[in-house]
Amino acid sequence: MSIDNLTARKLANLARIEISEDQLKDVVENLRTIIRLFDQLDEVDTLSVKPMTDITGHFLSQRDDLVIDTDCQDKIISNAPKVDHGFFVVPRIID
């Protein structure tokens, strides 16, 4: 499997990253090189191998239903680029 310009553009769009026209060639070339490394895995038959999603073997520990995070507003908005009356403000979202 390889990656072409269109796929790269699609990925960039999904990730909200812009690739300029003059960067595209290099970006695609680099991605291809790395993906060639991935394709090495085709050598291994994994049909009957279970995917490993957790290395810890832990189960989820659960928290009690307590409200412990109160008066957080300052901590939440103190680094915000733009706020008004406690709201985050962003450019207009057209529905």
Binding site: K10, L11, L14, I17, V27, T46, T53
Partner: peptide, 29 residues
């Protein structure tokens, strides 16, 4: 950005099984 694109690629529909799932199986091996 390169790694974000790579990560997006290996998780995206059509490639997930070939890359991400495969890698999880390799992790098991």
């Amino acid at each position: 950005k390169r790694r974000i694109l790579l990560g997006t690629y290996v998780l995206s529909s059509g490639y997930y099984d070939a890359y991400y799932l495969k890698a999880q199986k390799m992790r098991n091996l």
